[in-house]
Each structure stands twice: as C-alpha cells, then as structure tokens.
C-alpha cells in the first residue's frame, strides 16, 4: 500500500437552486493512493464534475472530510484553497484554457507566477523542463493559435506539471480531440504515471478509461461501482492499431 494522496470521507454536496435543494454528492467515500491513475466516469449529472471540483480544491463539500496529502482541506477558505491549488495540484481542462496571444512558455509559467518564492530564472527553467517533458521543447515560442489541438493540450499538461504537483486532475482532457490524438495524450499521461505522478482523469469514454489502472463510476451522487482494470491497455500499443491519417502530431 502506497501513501494516501486522497482520502474522502462521507462527502456531501448540496446546491440550492431557488427553493429546491439538489444533492449533487450524497456521501462519497474514496481513497486514492500515490502513483494511481484513476478514471472517474459517469453520465452528466452523476456528480463526477462536482467530485472533481472538490478534489481540485475549487469547491468545498457541504459536509464530510477531505484529506489531501494528509491535510484536511474541507474547511479551508478561498485563499488557502488557492495556495493548495498552486503548490499541490495541476489541472488539465477539456478546452485547454491557454491564454491567447501568449507563448507556450509563458502559458506554462503561469502557475509559477503566483508563487512568490520563485525567482524568475527558476521559473523559466521549470517551464522549459515541463515543456520538454511533454515533447514540445521546439514549440516554446509558439502562440496557441499556431499549435494543433493535441499540441495545445500538451502545453496545458506541461502547465499542470510545472509546479511538480502531487496530483494531476484532468477534466475530459481528450474530449475535444480525435481518437488518434486522444490516444497520444493518454500515452503521455501513462508516461507521467509511470514516472510516479498520481492522476485523476474524468471521462465518459470507456475506451479512454481502459488506459487507467482503476475506474470509479458515479451515478446520482453516489459511487456505483469501483474496479481495478484487469489489464491496462498501453496507449502506445493502441496507437498502432488505428490507421495513420496524418502524421503531423505523432509522438
């Protein structure tokens, strides 16, 4: 048993929509260990996005306990949560969310800009290292508009990696990409996972979930099922099975 990165106990989340109370999460218990690659699945409205927001310290639960890396974050205020996000978490979004008209390097530097303890030289060094890790060392000065979707998402992954987080949270990170590029991105995630990164990956595509080591399925605010993947599919192997249409984005 590795170290527990995430420990969620009886987490509930209620939303008030006018007079009606919506129970988005109705008592979730969840543990994720260091080095795991977990897929969170479920239909829309199942509570998986709410879970991700809470895991990502963007939101706090109505009740219950959440320990991230041994620290209780359930009752932190906005500023404390921002600090946790800055130092311990990395986000990858479906729509990449890169700053327009800003170079890949500056985009990757962004999280470090909010870390006052870093020198600008270190910041640049770390950003370059992160871009190298995602295979974009030669695209550092490119604007997002000059990059393909897959490349943009890799810049976003570099941005998530740059602060050396204990946990990477991906929200439908392959949702805007074609199958081939999705597989390439998943191969990148698998590489990162092999290097020891803990990844939580929200998706609704079972194909994508096959690349992870464990899948947790949400339904109506509860965990419906939880299972380890019997045989994890290697994304790089899977890539070979789909015909090459254009080669511009190959690893």
């Amino acid at each position: 048993m590795g170290k527990k990165i995430i420990e969620v106990k009886q987490v509930r989340k209620d939303y008030h929509v006018g007079e009606v109370v919506v129970h988005a999460l109705r008592g979730i218990n969840l543990e994720i260990e260091e080095g795991e690659f977990v897929a969170i699945m479920g239909a829309s409205g199942s509570g998986k996005s709410t879970m991700l927001n809470i895991l990502g310290c963007l939101d706090t639960p109505t009740s219950g306990e959440y320990y991230l890396d041994g620290t209780s974050v359930a009752s932190m205020n906005r500023n404390q949560l921002a600090g946790i996000r800055n130092r311990k978490l990395g986000f990858v979004f479906q729509a990449y969310n890169l700053l327009p008209r800003t170079t890949a390097l500056e985009n990757v530097e962004l999280p470090l800009m909010y870390n006052a303890s870093l020198h600008s030289k270190d910041r640049k060094k770390m950003a370059i290292a992160a871009l190298e890790a995602v295979g974009l060392a030669d695209r550092m000065d490119h604007m997002p508009s000059q990059l393909s979707g897959g490349q943009q998402q890799r810049v976003a992954i570099a941005r998530a990696l740059v602060n050396n987080p204990i946990l990477i949270l991906a929200d439908e990170a392959t949702g805007n990409l074609d199958t081939r590029t999705s597989f390439e991105i998943m191969a990148l995630f698998q590489d990162l996972n092999r290097q020891g990164k803990t990844i939580v990956f929200v998706t609704h595509e079972p194909d994508i979930a096959n690349f992870t080591s464990r899948r947790i399925v949400f339904r109506d605010g509860l965990i419906r099922s939880e299972e380890r993947t019997a045989s994890v599919v290697d994304a790089r192997e899977a890539l070979k099975t789909i015909p090459v249409l254009n080669n511009h984005d190959a690893l």
Binding site: L58, N79, A82, R85, F91, A95, P111, Y114
Partner: peptide, 14 residues
C-alpha cells in the same frame, strides 16, 4: 475564462 484559469492555478482573489 482567463480569470477562472488563473484562479485554478492558484491565483487568490486579491
């Protein structure tokens, strides 16, 4: 969206 992103990577309200 930019503001949202900045917040998610650790920018405080201030």
């Amino acid at each position: 969206r930019e503001i949202g992103l900045r917040m998610s990577v650790g920018a405080r309200s201030r």
